[in-house]
Design a protein around this nucleic acid. Structure first.
Lengths: 248, 248
DNA sequence: CGTTTGGTTGAAATGTGTCAAACTTTGTGG
DNA sequence: CCACAAAGTTTGACACATTTCAACCAAACG
């Protein structure tokens, strides 16, 4: 039941258990995965657009994001990743990476060879389904982000992003009450929301003076979760959290 | 070899064969799928956000799109679908739909029960992988759309969308040269690009007067494919087309 | 303690939205 | 086959949300 004897993969176990109940057998298969663990500094690329990786990685500690850059040199972050996530599982079935993946903070990632993952999937169909499901949830999040960036004004966009981070952190037990540590700069919020960093700053001040949030340093607190959700037009359905994770 | 004896599923076969080479066995399994075919008018919902469908569908004829609406009533289209696509394969592993799926034109869709699909996947691991891969490509397209809507100006946004449609239609043999039939209104392009219909109209006129496209009625012609790609900052990598499909 | 990084402010510029009306094409029933 | 309705496209004037630029401030860091 307790994965603490292998602290390295425990975020991954915790994440998978929030998706499906693992049998002892399955849990052991995860624990036995040959993982190449690597520590990375902040703002380092893990893999880059155009790469043809032979392995995927699990984010064990720290924060990361996928992003793409336009010809004009503007950057769009397309997703944030938190401990337990497998940000580039897609490369298991897509030869060429269409996006870059980089750290936001000092991080620890565990690399797993594709053959190993493939064999795990062949041997444990339920784990395969859980992985597939994971990638489907990623896709759902991308859809929501398109809506966010395409059809919400700046105020709602930022509120929505904050809501998503809060909900996901809570779902994996990385928050107490409605307070979380989010080491994301305003510049990065800008790249995630399709706004300028200056405007993000003004919006955050508005959210503060409206009494919705406290955001100082890395600490984000939702002072009024219900109103914040409303401001961000946030409905957590698209995160496909398990009922217990959602209630957390 | 020839799927023409069952014309109904042939777009699906063609699409799958553009992903993996099907064995006779596998092709037959697809042909044998119990498909409930249904004809739909334009602008009809196939499934809606919040539904818990027990089946997925293949788009056999016509055009469709996934979309979500904000609390303010604004609509964002998150993807276009063309014949052969399986727009809601996600519902196989996600209980609640987080997006709506509707037709753009009169269409014919084939519904397949989830249990049947699941059994197909269990029996034919390569088909399962092809399906998974399909959903990963969908995810890749959503990422690109987020970039498009978040970080490109109106001119590039529209050019990019036109490029994607052109490339995908060519990949499944629905174009000759650089001319395709695209029954999508400017209002729909607006909802796909996060712009107003008025502005879409002005941008399309600019693309026309710059000699990049002819767009009249449902006919889109790329007069200068290379310049159109450049205008749209379009790199087809994210579509993960097979080499032969890409050359088509 | 200086340097870097991230946050804040103000003024001016601009891309895109809104509104309202006219025009054009497509579809349909008489 | 015409007449009309409906749907889609085009136009102009104006409003405004957001960007850009440039400077300054605050906090973190070696």
């Amino acid at each position: 039941m307790d994965a603490s004897f292998n602290p390295v993969v425990s975020p991954l176990i915790r994440k998978l258990e929030s998706i499906i109940a693992l049998s002892d057998d399955e849990r052991q298969a995860i624990l036995d995965l040959p993982l190449q663990v690597m520590s990375l500094r902040a703002d380092q690329d893990i893999v880059r657009e155009g790469d043809r990786p032979s392995r995927s990685c699990a984010l064990l500690e720290g924060f990361a994001c996928t992003y793409k850059s336009t010809a004009e040199g503007k950057r769009q972050i397309t997703a944030f990743y938190i401990p337990g996530d497998i940000p580039d599982l897609q490369s298991l079935h897509l030869e060429v990476l269409d996006t870059s993946l980089g750290t936001l903070t000092p991080s620890k990632v565990g690399f797993i060879q594709h053959e190993v993952l493939q064999e795990l999937c062949d041997r444990h169909p339920r784990i395969a389904r859980a992985f597939w499901r994971e990638t489907l949830i990623d896709a759902s999040v991308f859809r929501e982000w398109t809506v966010n960036v395409g059809r919400r004004d700046a105020y709602a966009r930022i509120a929505h992003i904050l809501c998503e981070l809060m909900a996901r952190m809570r779902a994996v037990g990385l928050a107490r009450d409605h307070t979380v540590q989010i080491p994301i700069t305003q510049h990065e919020f800008a790249d995630a929301s399709g706004l300028s960093n200056v405007h993000v700053n003004r919006v955050i001040q508005a959210l503060r003076s409206d009494g919705l949030i406290v955001l100082k340093g890395e600490t984000l607190q939702a002072l009024d979760w219900e109103r914040l959700k409303e401001a961000g037009d946030f409905d957590p359905t698209y995160l496909h959290l398990s009922p217990k994770a959602e209630a957390a």
